[in-house]
Amino acid sequence: MTGGAVKISSSTGATGAIRAGATGLIFVAPALVLYAAFVLWPLASSVYYSMTDWDGISQARWIGFANFERAFADKIHLASYLHVTLYILGTLVFEVSFGLFMAVLLNSDRPGFALLRALFFSPVVLSMSAAGVLWTFVFDYRTGIINASLKAIGLTDWAQPWLSQPTTALLCVMLVSGWKFAGLYMILFFAALRRIPRHLYEAARLEGAGPVWSFCNITLPLLKQNILVAVLLAVTGGFAGFDLFFTMTNGQPYNSTEVPATWIMKQAFDNDQLGYGIALTVILTGVVCLISLIYLRYAERSHVVEY
């Protein structure tokens, strides 16, 4: 999730490129071999295994589309896509929007702001598993500091088993995700904000416009491209989401935080159904590619991505 690049390189950039023939291939070969062996090949073999009944040990048995039929009748599997959609919507609020807000708030040359930005960004470099373990303790019903704080200020009734209630568990994961990644979006928007000419704001101020007006009429339109890129990052990152769910809730309570990644791993490795698990990964790949294609079409039209 950290730093997914989205500026798609344009092949036209190579106008005047040196005709290199096979030499060019030699330069590409090491990267290509590694990439093909550990990204493309497993992707291709997934298609075969997705049509087998296989426990990883016995001989794989060809069963056609039965795994896919099962996948579309598997209600928890279907619900996992609902949960990941909610999670992505959550990340748009807690990561992207909050990141944008903080970028505007911390956009100043005054002393101290650079430190605040650095601190705000720091959770991004932490490992997800450390973050997940830490926050599991923070949310703990008996000893967590959230409930302890609530009790300390007299709101004993507000203390909840946060990660054990379907109504709050997913929200908790979203909050931690926000805590972890808002800094990433903050720094992206911050860099873009620095490129907006200051005289635009000064002119607006002279005409009596407030900061809110300036934000809506200057900042947002000028950041449109960055926002679109951030949304793509949040969406693709959301589908890859596994670590926090695994360390904090593992899909519970009552499968209310089950997302495709956690459900797939359970099917494949806890239930020894690698064939079915791989079929689920093929569906996940399909969904992500479809969304990316739709996005790219849209982005091409609004010139976010040159292609």
């Binding site: 997934s46 693709t236 797939i264 990964t281 790949t285 590619c289």
Partner: peptide, 18 residues
């Protein structure tokens, strides 16, 4: 380009068997 958007869980199992 494919590698930019693909989530790792999507091939994790196939990668495991490989």
């Amino acid at each position: 380009l494919v590698g930019l958007l693909l989530p790792p869980p999507a091939v994790a199992i196939a990668l495991f068997t490989q």
